[in-house]
Amino acid sequence: MKMNKVLAMATSMLLCGAVFAGCGTSDGSSSSSSGGSSKSLIKVGIINNDPNESGYRTANVNDLKATFTKDNGYDASFSYSLKNEEQINYAQKYIQDSVDYLLISAADTAGWDTVLKDAKDAGVRVILFDRTIDADPSLYEASIVSDMDKEGEQAVDWLKSQNLTSYDIIHLQGVMGSAAQKGRSGALTKTASDLNWNIVVEQTAEWNAEKAQQIVQSAIDANKKFNVIYAENDDMAKGAVAALDKANISHGVGKDVVVMGFDCNKWALEELKAGNWNYDGQCNPFQSSYIVDIIGKLEKGETLSEKTIIMNEKGFDATTITDEDVQNYGI
């Protein structure tokens, strides 16, 4: 227990020191081994967002780390930052180190043109993952992205297939303007107006469980009738469920209220397995297999048929989800 306090203090000091020095890098670059063995390894520089950003990012980082290992034939260096300028600095460093491939999940879409041109001149091949960049497509080999619109459409199609007698929906939105919010809201708004679904409440809970709880609580207190909770992430679905539990409203498979979430956190999939929730849509953080595939093709000298690759994303139904799904897809 005391250890905790000491450790926490120690880190705070350390971090503060880093802030003052203005070099808050967490550059875990693995030093390349002796000349002979490193020759056969493919040298990869990976620039990602901070793993602390979200559960999604943690899963994403772990997936990349597990794939780009020496055993798999890669000499990989990792750099993390939520700041675009810092990411660009890392990119320049990797170009100077003459890596074979530069993998980028950009913090911001703008400002990358110059560094990507440098990369091209130096013969470094760039693959974007998770996030796109506003730059000329000739500057990168491929871009692997999630299609948030598709995620929303999948979920709404599932809801449509449930053939409920009426659709009275509480729509809990994420932070307004984020890509995930736009895609997931867009599909529901469109279908609701096409099929005359009744959106009882539409409010942003900013990805926050407690705000979601307050919003649903407020709807219950106002005696609003609803039978679907469409929450744009798992946390908000959890908050909504807490409010339902408080008012003794049943939810889940074959119950009064249908609960839908996104992101496939492991605990959320467990709720799904227990039948307390009905649907969870995936936002796929496992991009490494796609990247490996592309690198393999490029190494063989093949050309890619498409620049933009949209990942397969699943939607889980509480009635069909298996324990393996929970293990494999939970983040």
Partner: peptide, 28 residues
């Protein structure tokens, strides 16, 4: 006026709980 309405009912564990906007305010 229904803003001030406070009701009491069981939650899913069977405990009686007050609910209403005023309760939400003092809670959150």
């Amino acid at each position: 006026r229904s803003f001030f309405k406070i009701t009491i009912g069981p939650n899913s564990d069977g405990n009686p709980v007050l609910s209403g906007n005023i309760i939400s305010i003092i809670d959150y």
